[in-house]
Design a protein around this nucleic acid. Structure first.
Lengths: 226, 226
DNA sequence: AGGCGCCTCAGTCGTGCGGGGGAGTGTGGA
DNA sequence: TCCACACTCCCCCGCACGACTGAGGCGCCT
């Protein structure tokens, strides 16, 4: 008998899951929780084999709850469910200790199969996210030669300089001083960089720079206000 | 109908698999190959949905064959099978593009479930290897010990959560959604973080996070404008 | 000669951000 | 009981940022 704990802040969703799961012999929904804090408590009490966990919830979200549950010795496998197919959810969920990751758009029999898999101790990922996980494995560190971002080549010399300084936390005015040009010029460069990299603001440019090795941790100055 | 290609240098093993798989309705073993080179050729010819691939084989081993197949546009999912539970096999297989990894000691119904999963596009890992995959995610490299900035301790739980999300490039509004609080609350948290860390704006907070290991390159999502 | 890409700047405009204040809740310790 | 602290939320305000449009100068190529 596979003991299941349902965790979702929407009772409608819980009812839906319960209905689907109870059609399957060998499944027993032993409890429900409406938020992460409740989930952690119930996981200890009820000792389920599999926990179907929503990502977005009040009080304590699904990621934090999964972290707590997996740090304990409950022995439960967590199947993370989400409405949105977002990378950050996925990777955080896996890091938190989840064994599965499905979208709520999944078919009922798909969900049932996933729970069977997790009950056995398997890990199971939704089709849409599989590729990204594999890709993440493909380049775990620099030794396998990073892609070295093709987008970087599309930037002009001046735009690269601007990106470097921008990634170090300099404002447009500061960059202008460094490059001995007007602030309006810097703004043009910054706009071009954002457009070429396909990102929305300078903050994402900073992140992009770190993620693509344009700047590395420990090689620059640590920002303080002094 | 799920079309399956069996690849193993031992004919006895192939016969065994074929017998097991043919008991399952919806499965059709469309071909067999005895080495990696043969597998690549047959994968192109027969266009299977799932390829059951042995790791150790003459001529071209399962890892190399998987790499070639996945680089092409065959659309086939590769289920890697091995007698030995070795880390290097596992990670190499995933890097090569395999979608599943099972031990040959797996139960027949386990194998059947795995093929169902792969046919849908899922990824499936054996219980024994699941833990190691998750762990690999948890620590992207060996140097688990980081600076661990003392200032981080002065932050409250909520402020740390805010910093994490902020460092991933989320706006105040987005953070508010994630934490289920108002934007005003997030602004308070952000202001507190900036004050406690002694930095001037959220951009420097992103940099601070990368420099102090609060977030690491390669462990989050790369920003794009969707 | 003309075209093109890069660099340089100006101006306007809307918005997100961050500082400054204040205020209410609940919890836990002195 | 009272106080400290974390968390929640509200207001106002100034400003840096980024989008948009337009413009001139420079070197290079056909």
């Amino acid at each position: 008998m596979t003991r299941i704990l349902l965790v979702d802040d929407q009772s409608l969703v819980r009812v839906g899951f319960r209905t689907i799961l109870e059609t399957e012999p060998g499944f027993e929904v032993v409890g429900e929780a409406a938020d992460g804090r409740d989930a952690v408590t119930k996981a200890k009490e009820l000792r389920p084999d599999v926990i179907c966990m929503d990502v977005q919830m009040p009080v304590l979200d699904g990621l934090a709850a999964t972290r707590e549950i997996c740090e304990g010795d409950s022995g439960a496998s967590v199947l993370m469910l989400t409405t949105f197919d977002r990378d950050d959810f996925l990777f955080e969920a896996l890091r938190a200790g989840a064994s599965g990751f499905l979208l709520k758009t999944a078919e009922p029999e798909h969900l049932i199969d996933a729970i069977h898999a997790l009950a056995r101790g398997d890990a199971l990922l939704a089709p849409a996210v599989t590729r990204r996980v594999i890709e993440r494995f493909a380049t775990p560190d620099g030794t396998t030669t990073l892609p070295e971002a093709a987008e970087l080549d599309t930037l002009t010399e001046r735009e690269r300089e601007t990106l470097m300084l921008l990634a170090r936390g300099h404002s447009n005015g500061e960059i202008a001083e460094r490059l001995y040009v007007g602030e309006a010029t810097v703004k043009t460069h910054v706009s071009n960089v954002l457009m070429k990299l396909g990102i929305r603001d300078r903050i994402h440019a900073v992140i992009w720079a770190y993620e693509h090795g344009v700047v590395q941790a420990g090689t620059g100055s640590v920002p303080t206000v002094e």
